[in-house]
Write a protein that binds this DNA or RNA. Sequence first.
RNA 1: GGCGAGUUGGCGGAGUGGUUACGCAGCGGAUUGCAAAUCCGUGUACAGGAGUUCGAUUCUCCUACUCGCCUCCA
Length: 485
Amino acid sequence: MTTPKTTIKLYNTKTRRKEDFVPIDADNVRMYVCGPTVYDRAHLGNARPVIVFDILYRLLRHVYGPDHVTYVRNFTDVDDRINETAQKRKAAGAEGTLETLIADRADETIDWYHQDMDALGALRPDHAPRATGFIGQMVAMIEDLIAKGHAYAAEGHVLFAVDSYKEYGALSGRSVDDMIAGARVEVAPYKRNPMDFVLWKPSTDDLPGWDSPWGRGRPGWHIECSAMAHELLGEAFDIHGGGNDLTFPHHENEIAQSTCVGHGFANVWMHNEMLQVEGKKMSKSLGNFFTVRDLLEQGVPGEVIRFVFLSTHYRKPMDWTEKKRAEAEKTLRKWYDLLTDVEPSTPDENFIADLADDLNSSKALYWLHHMADDLKQYQYWTSHGVEYVGPTPEELEATFLASAHLLGLLWQPTDNLSLPIIDLGAWEKELSKARSLAMQTKDFTEVDRIKNTLLEADVEVQMSKDSVKLTAGSAFDPSKLEALK
RNA sequence: GGCGAGUUGGCGGAGUGGUUACGCAGCGGAUUGCAAAUCCGUGUACAGGAGUUCGAUUCUCCUACUCGCCUCCA
């Protein structure tokens, strides 16, 4: 085991401080991130933790080695909204039992999720466990909690007794008394304390259920992460992540369960801030709700979405705006234009240092801008016959590309960001011909007419001394070129 | 009501106890038939008030405003 030369600093919600990250075992750095409930397409907000922790995963792999990091992200496939869809389908005459219809809905949603997150350039975790695959472990954990006096069965439910755990509320900075005073808790007659939360609940015949010492039922939401993290990552692991809306109650409850059963659980707790859209919370009622798939279908490349997310630090609210989308696309296109076919080398050290400082992705992008600038200048001056002492353009490009790859950017072959590939060769010849003629006659009316029409059709026109280059933009409208014929 | 985060130039967005990144937009110049692209150069900011300090945008407190969570929404 070698000591890594990069020290990663991470903000730990548990201590409310930025700390040097020291893994339990540098040969196997372990991270658990709360994944989606698979009831429907992932909305844009779901993409934020995916991208944030993808960056952390890539950084950890860079620092500790790709074979020395284990990343687990779960799928919650026990959920009433999944059941609802299945019930509706059954009522509409779909084939199969309710169980298979539920499984089908989860399967298709997981498939969508993978497709959408792949499009964002997110690496797949090492394990993507489904809650339904770990019911046995959950039941065993609940039994253990009861045996240790931290949980009790009542009316087919099993509840965690918050009074049995003194530290309850420590992660989110709340006290049980304050929360009860807030009066936002569900009052149920079988609860000893209003804050007690469900570990197990009974299922009726029309709901999925598993046999248990407390009758046929299904697990509460929080226990799955405790059980799966323990099963796949062991008694204690390094990092636990998720959106900051999960801090309470989800993560608070995970800690309570796992700690009371005797697990060390997670050392570092990380939470990303929420996403907004044009300055407002994304919600169906405001009409600004959309999925990752919606954006992709509108022709916004996943890489552009990723770039926009990276431009804001993960602990700050991020606003998704049309303007940012356009800027990101423009920048990425410029960067792609700089690339020749040089192979990536190793990332820039300054770049790594800032990224390792609590994932300062915005600062990391600054370094990419910086490197791109250098590269551009070397390319420019080299092409003008000026010789420089220092790194060659190839070396600069290799470092630039390796750095960009660490952020999951510029990974596509050559491409220019899924721009429609439209052959405008005929128009290039046309314009070129008219221009050569105009050079002699000094009458540029025809050239301007063609150029302006092309511009109106969203074609970028670049004329140099001896060539004409046309590139169709994302709003390319071929019908506008009809006028030229 | 409880808990937490934030307020930086036209916009976005880092960072720092003393010379304030960067991107986009703007402006000037080179280049161009005109443009585009590219190159060179360039201006503007740290919510308000008080305190600590030789000195605060950076630390502390107060005020205002914004936002999030407390509802199995990441």
